[in-house]
Amino acid sequence: MQQQEIHKFLERYFHANGCEITDKGPGYMTVQLTIDLDKELMNRPFYWHYLEKTGGIPNPMQLTLITNQQLAPPHIKGEVIHFGSPRLHQIFDSARNLAGYIRLYENHRQAPGKQVPLRPWLGMNIRVSYQCDRKRDVFKSIGLQLINGQMVESFHDRLLGMSLTPKIPDYSFTLSPLIMPGSGVFRVANFIKAEIEQEDHKWADEARKRWQKDLTLLEHFYEEAEEKGESYENEKTALQEQYEPKVNISIINGGLFYLTDNAV
Results as ranks from 00 to 15, higher is better:
E5P: 00
I6V: 15
F14G: 07
E20Y: 02
I21L: 11
D23N: 13
D23V: 04
K24A: 11
K24H: 13
P26D: 11
M29D: 03
K39P: 07
M42A: 01
H49N: 09
K53V: 14
G56E: 11
N59K: 15
Q69S: 13
Q70R: 14
A72M: 05
P73M: 08
P73L: 07
H75M: 07
G78P: 09
I81R: 03
H82D: 10
H89L: 14
H89Q: 15
Q90L: 11
Q90G: 04
I91T: 03
L104F: 03
S129Y: 03
K135D: 00
D137H: 06
V138I: 10
I142W: 06
G143E: 09
Q145D: 13
M151A: 03
D157Y: 06
L159T: 11
K167Q: 12
K167H: 11
P177S: 12
M180N: 05
V188H: 04
N190W: 00
I192P: 08
A194R: 09
E195F: 02
Q198V: 00
R208G: 00
W211N: 09
W211V: 01
T216G: 12
E223K: 14
A225W: 03
E230M: 12
E233A: 13
E235R: 12
T237A: 10
A238M: 05
E244R: 13
P245Q: 04
N253L: 06
N262L: 14
